[in-house]
Design a protein around this nucleic acid. Structure first.
Lengths: 179, 179
DNA sequence: GAGTACATGTAATTAGTTACATGATTGA
DNA sequence: TCAATCATGTAACTAATTACATGTACTC
């Protein structure tokens, strides 16, 4: 489905950007709440998108001589992206989840062993939830209006909070069962 | 992390089983709520597990001459599996989500276009939730005790319900914002 | 006899991770 | 000058999907 392609096109569409900054978006910014990619996947994809005519780049000199490639979207890239954006696709496959896989086989563990695993998951998910909560508080006093630039950011952050909340509730329920 | 390996070992550990039936577990049973695999991935992995000494098989004749391979777990396989099962691993990476990717860029769509996408997602997730709900009602009058065979089945079904509930709540919240 | 489900495989491709590899810039 | 970060790439490998390929058994 070339999702990485469209994730990149979306970013370049919003502003001229380097491969390095695209990587930061994927791994450190809001984007990381629903898509991640390493630089080793991003750079080849950028080259492919230039070859396809969806992107162009200019060389920019940083400092004395370091070369950066600043990518711009082309008309073709913009058309491609907007066409993808409004497509109504069936809900994606249920994501693979290694902890649920363990949980499925948990009757083979002792209660104390499984409790230990649950508590570890719980504390990590709680930390993640707290961090998301904090980001929300620090960045939004009120929900931004639909159509404003930050609306996308806001709703996916809301989505991440809902997802973590569901996860935490489930983990608490599991703990409750094993007593 | 060889998760497919352990998913298969867990199934074979519970009973002697054919590759075909493993495929059914992955794609039609409870397992499909947190792990999926096609037969083209399962059969080679089974061969690998036999080569590793984690599984053995016997040929069983079905009808006149059709050969089935009935897989059994070995002591080594059992040890491998139990060792994996009690391992406390860090929470898995946030799953990739194509609809959230679209949502992130939704300010480029009109309200009616994005509403259409949201409503489509909503009805599909609602249908999934209803199906899970029904499965729960049909199979469990009361939660099974920890340690019983059906406990694993039960909690991952609970997990799937929590996940879908979180997703539905988020989609409703998005709809609410665009009015 | 036809259609569906049972049963098992391989080949080609795409997606993604880990490791290898290099060099410049910035701030302490 | 040292360390962290900026910046860009490739190679090897693992994971997963799609397509190709074949034949049997069961039920209507």
């Amino acid at each position: 489905m070339r999702e990485l392609k469209y994730a990149i096109l979306g970013l370049v569409n919003s502003r001229p950007i380097t491969g390095y900054d695209i990587m930061k978006e994927f791994n450190e910014r809001t984007m990381s709440n629903f898509w991640r990619a390493k630089h080793s996947q991003i750079y080849p994809e950028l080259q492919k998108l230039v070859a396809e005519g969806a992107l162009e780049y200019e060389i920019v000199i940083q400092g004395r001589k370091m070369e950066k490639k600043l990518y711009h979207i082309t008309e073709k890239g913009k058309k491609d992206f907007l066409q993808w954006l409004c497509k109504d696709e069936p809900i994606s496959e249920t994501p693979k989840d290694p902890f649920r896989l363990r949980s499925y086989f948990c009757p083979l563990l002792s209660a104390s062993q499984y409790r230990r695993l649950l508590e570890s998951q719980l504390s990590q998910h709680q930390a993640k939830y707290d961090l998301l909560s904090q980001t929300m508080q620090e960045n939004y006093t009120a929900p931004p209006a639909f159509g404003t630039d930050s609306f996308g950011d806001y709703i996916v952050l809301e989505g991440a909070l809902h997802r973590e909340r569901g996860q935490l509730e489930w983990l608490h329920r599991c703990l409750q069962f094993i007593g």
